[in-house]
Design a binder for these strands. Structure first.
Lengths: 140, 140
DNA sequence: GTAGTTATTGCAAGAACTTGCAATAAGGGT
DNA sequence: ACCCTTATTGCAAGTTCTTGCAATAACTAC
C-alpha cells in the first residue's frame, strides 16, 4: 500500500489531505491495471479498510478525478468506470463481445486542436470510448 | 402524438411491436429537441400516459437506442441522456457549468477512418462526448 | 507535543436504476 | 371478428448512486 503514499505531498500542497480512505482507493486502482466500477472498487477497498463506506468511495473517485489522479471512462452501459491516471489514451469497445483495446492519444491530437478552434472551448481533454466491432466478431 | 406513429411499420417489420408506451416516449423525445435524462422523460411521459412505470421507461430507452430511434449521450456525471435520432453529431460539455454544444460529425470522419485502419475494428460509430471548458467559464 | 482549524468521513435517508416473473395486449393467422 | 402466440409491461424487491449534516481526524502553527 505504501506505493500510493507518494501522492500525499501533491495533495497537501493544494490544501487537501491524504487519508487512509484515499490511500486505499489509490492502492486498489494502482493494482487493478484496468477499469473498475465503483462497486468493485468499494468491495476491494473494504478488504483493506473494512470501515470504509460507499458514499466515501464515490466522493473519493470524483475527488481523485478532479485532481488528476484517476481517470474516468464510460462503460457500455453509460456509467463511469475508473482507473489510475497514466499517459493519455482512449478505448474502442466491441459492441458484440465487449472486448476493448487502447488507442494512443497521439492519434487524436489533431482532432482536439480542430475542435478547440471550431468551438471556442478550451482544455478539451476527455477520455473517449468508441464503439465498434472487433476483427474477431466482424468475421463471425 | 400521431407524429411518432410513423415509426410503427419500421418496428413491426423487425418483429417488434408499437405500444402506447413507446409512442409516448418517442413523442416526448421528438418535442424535447435536446437531451433528456431518463427521470425527466419519465415525468413527461406520465403526463400523457399516467400508468407508465419507471422500468418501462428505462427498458424502452434502451430498446429505442438499439433500434436506432434514439441516441444516448453522456451527461457530465457519466449517466446516459437521450434524444431522438437524427443526423450524426457529437457534443462538448463544459466541465464547469455543464453547458453543451454540438459538433458536426464531419469533423470526425478522418479520425474514424484512421482508427479503423489502426485498430482493425469496423463500424466505429459512437456518439462522443468531449469534456472541456466553455468560453464563458474560461474567462471567469 | 498540543491545540485549533476545517477538510473529510460516516450515517441515514432518499433518489435513480435494475432484475425476475407473472399478467397483459399487439399483431399475425384464420 | 376472433383466437393464439409471444413481445412487452407492471409489479415488487433489490442494487447502485446521491445528499445533508454532525462527528471525526489530518494537518498547521505554536
Amino acid at each position: 500500500m505504501s506505493c500510493a503514499s507518494e501522492y500525499a505531498p501533491q495533495l497537501r500542497s493544494r490544501g487537501f489531505r491524504m487519508t487512509s480512505q484515499r490511500l486505499v482507493i489509490l492502492h486498489v486502482l494502482q493494482h487493478a491495471g484496468t477499469h473498475l466500477a465503483p462497486r468493485e472498487i468499494y468491495k476491494q477497498a473494504r478488504r483493506e479498510l473494512p470501515g470504509i463506506t460507499e458514499p466515501t468511495v464515490y466522493r473519493t473517485l470524483e475527488f481523485l478525478t478532479e485532481n488528476g489522479l484517476a481517470r474516468p471512462s464510460h462503460s457500455s452501459h453509460g456509467h463511469f468506470t475508473y482507473q489510475i491516471a497514466r499517459e493519455d489514451h482512449h478505448h474502442i469497445v466491441c459492441r458484440a463481445c465487449g472486448g476493448q483495446i487502447e488507442v494512443a492519444h497521439g492519434l487524436l491530437e489533431n482532432l482536439y486542436q480542430t475542435l478547440e478552434k471550431a468551438s471556442g472551448y478550451r482544455k478539451i481533454g476527455s477520455h473517449l470510448t468508441f464503439l465498434g466491432v472487433c476483427p474477431k466478431c466482424a468475421s463471425a
